[in-house]
Amino acid sequence: MAATEKEIVDGLAEIVNEIAGIPVEDVQLDKSFTDDLDVDSLSMVEVVVAAEERFDVKIPDDDVKNLKTVGDATKYILEHQG
């Protein structure tokens, strides 16, 4: 069953917490992975791969660079999840 927006944000928060040690409550739709959450380009790849597994979605390398905020990633997953 497809995940809701809230489930995706909660899931991303857990992933970002696991990979970058950022408190889950800081992971909000308007937050930038790089500027606000201290997720660098390599950690972003780990976040993306974890999100792919969790939400049954493929996020090609070319699309990763467009995912600037948690909102961008959430929208992408909502639109592409299996």
Binding site: L42, V45, D61
Partner: peptide, 12 residues
């Protein structure tokens, strides 16, 4: 090299 693509391939 394309850093992110290399990282993903190399790790996973």
């Amino acid at each position: 090299q394309e850093g992110q693509a290399v990282f993903r391939w190399a790790v996973f």
